[in-house]
Structure formats: structure tokens, C-alpha cells
Amino acid sequence: MSTDSNADGGRRQVRLLIVDDSNIVRRRIERSQRLGEIEVVGTASNGIEALELARRTDPDLVTMDLTMPQMDGIECISRLIELKPSMRILVISALADKATAVQAMEQGANGFLHKPFTDRQLNDAIAELIF
């Protein structure tokens, strides 16, 4: 992780933004991170919301759904990277074909987790991205 200007002296918590059009999935990801070193700074249900939240909350890590109404995940990834190149993005999607994964990675995603997923798979995927 790059150290940010607003680091508060001590070890900074990783700031996580959750993007998924399903409430249930959002809450699941949120719950799984409650006790960790990760601070959930926001949740968004589509790309446009995600961009706006990202501007305000300056996340280090984003979990990103792909199939969403109003700006899908792929487009949102490239916009987020433009906003903050050091941002790490974990795609969490049911789309299981390879071309989609390549496309997401090419836009700047750092990892790919298929739905459905277990908490353990989620934590492993996140850990791989931030440590």
C-alpha cells in the first residue's frame, strides 16, 4: 500500500468501498470485514454511486460487482483507477468467462472472485490484494 497524505501517524486502516447491486451481498462483505483491519468506508449499488463515494471517502480497496444497472463494473473500474491509481480493486462477479476477467484486469482490477463465494474465499482474496 502506498502511504497517503492523510495517514494519521499510526498504522492506517485499509479503507474499503463495497460496490454491488445486491444489498445482501453488500452486507455480507461488510459483515465479513467487521473485525479485521479493514474499515468499510462506504457501499454503493451501482457505478455512478461508487464513483461519487470514492471521491468523498478515498478508499484503498474496492470490491466491485460487474453486472449492475447504471454504469457497469468494467467502466467503473477504469474511472476509479483514473481517480486514484494506487487503488486496489477486487472484482466479485458471477460472470465466469475468461474474456470478462481479462477485460476487468485490463481496466485495472487486481483480483477476481467468483460468486458465489465463502467468507474464507473472500478474506483470502482481499488478503492477497492488500498484504
Binding site: S22, V25, A94, A96, D97, A99
Partner: peptide, 18 residues
């Protein structure tokens, strides 16, 4: 119920392709 439908169909891309 939407998420289940989405997951099932999305996973199917593994075999059906992009």
C-alpha cells in the same frame, strides 16, 4: 432471488463464453 438468478446465469458463461 435476483442474486441467485444472476449467479447461476453468470456462472454459465464459463461454458457458454463471453
Amino acid at each position: 432471488v435476483g442474486e441467485v438468478a444472476n449467479t447461476i446465469s453468470g456462472n454459465a458463461r464459463r461454458d457458454f463464453g463471453h
